[in-house]
């Protein structure tokens, strides 16, 4: 996967509460790898393009390293064009299964949250 230069699909504010990002960044990164192997800057750009703000390397790489240890991703150094190589991350089958599971869980959670928030408030009732 390469860094896209198409117009951004920003999904609103990029100033999400850090707790929200901490909770979701894991499967968002797995999702960013679902289209194929990718490298650090491309993953950061992909998430930024979709409105999640700029993820720092100090957040991204420790997460990917933990996923590599857990067998969710594999890494490979590929030669660069006349320059230093790039480290590519790729989803394993376990990682793909985990992405499907977490995505489904998240959709159920966000659906429950939305339904609850959409309920009429009982303010003023006794």
């Amino acid at each position: 996967m390469e860094v896209s230069t198409s117009s951004p699909q920003v999904a609103g504010s990029v100033d999400w509460p850090s707790d929200w990002l901490r909770a979701t960044l894991g499967f968002l990164c797995l999702r960013a790898l679902s289209a194929g192997p990718s490298y650090g800057y491309a993953i950061i750009s992909e998430l930024e393009r979709h409105g999640f703000g700029t993820i720092k390397g100090g957040t991204l790489y420790p997460l990917l390293t933990r996923y590599e240890t857990a067998g969710l991703v594999t890494t490979e150094w590929r030669a660069g064009d006349g320059g230093p190589g790039r480290k590519y991350f790729a989803l394993t089958e376990t990682g793909r299964t985990e992405l499907i599971r977490l995505s489904a869980d998240w959709l159920r959670f966000s659906d429950a949250t939305t339904r609850y928030l959409d309920q009429p408030t009982m303010e003023g009732s006794s």
Binding site: Y39, G40, Y41, I44, G57, Y61, W77, P84, G85, R86, K87
Partner: peptide, 8 residues
């Protein structure tokens, strides 16, 4: 190497 790659 991966940190330098991202800084570049």
């Amino acid at each position: 190497a991966s940190a330098k790659e991202l800084l570049r």
